[in-house]
Amino acid sequence: MGNRTEEDYNFVFKVVLIGESGVGKTNLLSRFTRNEFNHDSRTTIGVEFSTRTVMLGTAAVKAQIWDTAGLERYRAITSAYYRGAVGALLVFDLTKHQTYAVVERWLKELYDHAEATIIVMLVGNKSDLSQAREVPTEEARMFAENNGLLFLETSALDSTNVELAFETVLKEIFAKVSKQRQNSTRTGAITLGSGQAGQELGPGEKRACCISL
């Protein structure tokens, strides 16, 4: 992944993290964007987010990753959260079957609010706790295949597959955008999805001016 500065980017992709409370969404985010892990990270209330710019081939892609509270009642306020998202990581805790059992509900939630073209990856997190595993890899993989999702098992704690997970999703989005771009005359940054997303993420005239801490 590249070491370009935050300011240089050709694409902005909004990616959302979803899944039950306590599966490790916030730590996946902090591992990917800041290479940090915290056993006692605070509960997410409302919305958090962070960015990281990565190189895909010659293109700089700014990944704007949104993280939200997993508790069911917060879903009422998440329609704003999904708006403009072109990728999603649907995270479950592979040591807690209950968090996997509700994946389908999360999928529905996602498709209800996000673009139909959204790239989704099913992520089984906490692979470092293999002795406590409650969800067999194959089962989750099958589910992902049957539902047209990407699939990976990660560990935010020991970093396993975290980069790969995000990178894979971003690449998929990129591929889709590239295809779309062939039909588009627009130059500069392009966003997937509707005009809404374009407005939000902004065309190339907008520059990042914030630093993720």
Binding site: V12, E48, F49, T51, Q64, E200, L201, G202, K206, R207, A208, C209, C210, S212, L213
Partner: peptide, 15 residues
């Protein structure tokens, strides 16, 4: 001026 995009604005509101 320093937060012209949505993301920049959100970032500002979080810091």
């Amino acid at each position: 001026r320093s937060c012209q995009g949505m993301y920049e604005t959100m970032e500002q509101l979080r810091n």
